[in-house]
C-alpha cells in the first residue's frame, strides 16, 4: 500500500512539470476541485466537506484548491442532478449522506446512485436514541414501556427532515417495539437536539456530534446506539460515561441497526486514473490528526472502502432503504 502511494505521489510530482503529458500513469486536477454538498451549510456532510477542504489546504495535499458548494434544494436532489449532468468532469466530487437513496425514492426525481462513479467511503455516522435527562426512564425497556403507556400518537419523536434517515429509524423502532410515535420533522440536527432539551419532543435519534454537548451538560441521556457493536471511543464524555458505555439497541431488545454513509462519488464517465488520484488523496486525509480528531469528536465508525467493495456496499444499502421505505409507505407515487 505504502509503495503504491509513493509511486503515485512520485509520478504526480513528475507530471506536474508537464501537465499536458499524454501519459496515463497518473492524473491530477488541473483546476479547482468542487465538493458538492447535497445539504445546507452547517450540517454533518457540510462540516465534513469543509474539514477536508481545510486539511487539504493546510497539509498541501493537492496543487489545486478545494471549493465547497452547497446544493441543498429538493432534499439534495439539486446536487445529485448537477453531478449527473457533468459526465466526465473530474473536478467535481459529491459528498453523500443517506439522501443518496432516500431523496430519489421519496421525491421521484430522476436519479440513481449508479449513474455516478463511486469513489470512497470515508466513515459511517452513528445514530443514538436520546431522551431528556429529566425523564424517569433510564433503559430502553423503561422507555418502550413509557411510549406504550402514552396515548397512541402522543409520544413525540423529533428528527431531521421527512422520509429521511431519522424517520426511517423511527418507523423501524415502531415496528420493532410495536409502538406508535408522532414524528416531527425539523430542518437541522442541532435544532432537534435543542427541542429535546426544551422538552418539545420526547426523544430523538440524533447523530453523536449533534447531541454530545447536551449530554455532557447533563441535559440529555443516550439509551442505545443503532449499530451492530458498541462504539470504540472509550474516553469519558459525560461523568463516568463514554461513547463505549452506550449499549447497542439490539442488546436492549430493539432490533434495529442503522449507519449513515459519509462517502464520496464522482461524476459519471470519469477515468480510473482520476478515481485513483482522489482515493489516494483521501487516504492521506485520513492520516492527518485533524481528521482523527473529527472522527473521535463525532464518534464515527471509521470503515473505509473503495472500488467494487464500496459499490457493493452502496447497492446493498439501497436495497435495504427501498425495503424500509416501502414498508413505511415513503415511496413517491409514480406520476
Amino acid at each position: 500500500m505504502m509503495s503504491m502511494r509513493t509511486i503515485l505521489a512520485g509520478a504526480a510530482a513528475a507530471l506536474c512539470v508537464a501537465p499536458l503529458s499524454t501519459s496515463h500513469a497518473a492524473w491530477e486536477p488541473s483546476r479547482p476541485v468542487e465538493i458538492i454538498v447535497p445539504a445546507g451549510p452547517g450540517g454533518g456532510a457540510d462540516q465534513m466537506a469543509r474539514v477536508i477542504q481545510g486539511i487539504v489546504t493546510q497539509h498541501k495535499l493537492m496543487k489545486q484548491s478545494v471549493v465547497v458548494v452547497n446544493k441543498a434544494g429538493g432534499a439534495g436532489g439539486e446536487g445529485f442532478l448537477d453531478m449527473k449532468a457533468s459526465p466526465g468532469n473530474p473536478h467535481k466530487l459529491a459528498i453523500t449522506l443517506s439522501n443518496l437513496f432516500t431523496t430519489p425514492l421519496a421525491t421521484g426525481i430522476p436519479f440513481n446512485w449508479n449513474e455516478l462513479t463511486p469513489l470512497a467511503m470515508l466513515a459511517l455516522d452513528e445514530f443514538v436514541l436520546w431522551v431528556n435527562a429529566e425523564k424517569p426512564y433510564k433503559t430502553v425497556k423503561e422507555y418502550i414501556a413509557a411510549v406504550k403507556a402514552a396515548p397512541a400518537g402522543q409520544f413525540k419523536m423529533g428528527g431531521t427532515g421527512s422520509k429521511q434517515e431519522d424517520q426511517i429509524i423511527t418507523v423501524a423502532v415502531e415496528k420493532a417495539a410495536g409502538v406508535k410515535f408522532a414524528y416531527i420533522p425539523y430542518k437541522g440536527g442541532g435544532e432537534v437536539a435543542v427541542q429535546l432539551v426544551g422538552n418539545h419532543v420526547d426523544s430523538t435519534v440524533n447523530n453523536p456530534i449533534e447531541a454530545v454537548a447536551h449530554w455532557r451538560a447533563g441535559k440529555l441521556r443516550p439509551l442505545c446506539v443503532f449499530d451492530g457493536k458498541q462504539l470504540v471511543y472509550g474516553d469519558k464524555v459525560a461523568g463516568d460515561l463514554g461513547w463505549s458505555s452506550i449499549p447497542t439497541c439490539k442488546s436492549q431488545g430493539l432490533d434495529m441497526e442503522y449507519l449513515m454513509l459519509r462517502g464520496f462519488f464522482m461524476a459519471p464517465k470519469v477515468t480510473a486514473e482520476q478515481v485513483a488520484f482522489y482515493v489516494d488523496l483521501f487516504k492521506k486525509v485520513r492520516e492527518t490528526p485533524e481528521w482523527k480528531k473529527l472522527m473521535s469528536d463525532g464518534a464515527f465508525n471509521q470503515t473505509f472502502m473503495v472500488g467494487a467493495e464500496y459499490a457493493k456496499w452502496v447497492a446493498t444499502e439501497e436495497k435495504r432503504h427501498e425495503a424500509l421505505m416501502k414498508e413505511a409507505g415513503f415511496i413517491a407515487p409514480k406520476q
Binding site: P41, R50, H214, E290, D297
Partner: peptide
C-alpha cells in the same frame, strides 16, 4: 448549539472543527 442564522450555522461548524463544543458547558 442551535444557530440563529445561516452564518451562525457555519460559525458553529467552525467551532466544532477547532474542537470547541458549543453548548451549555
Amino acid at each position: 448549539g442551535v444557530p440563529g442564522s445561516p452564518t451562525a450555522a457555519v460559525l458553529l461548524g467552525g467551532l466544532l472543527i477547532w474542537g470547541l463544543q458549543p453548548g451549555p458547558l
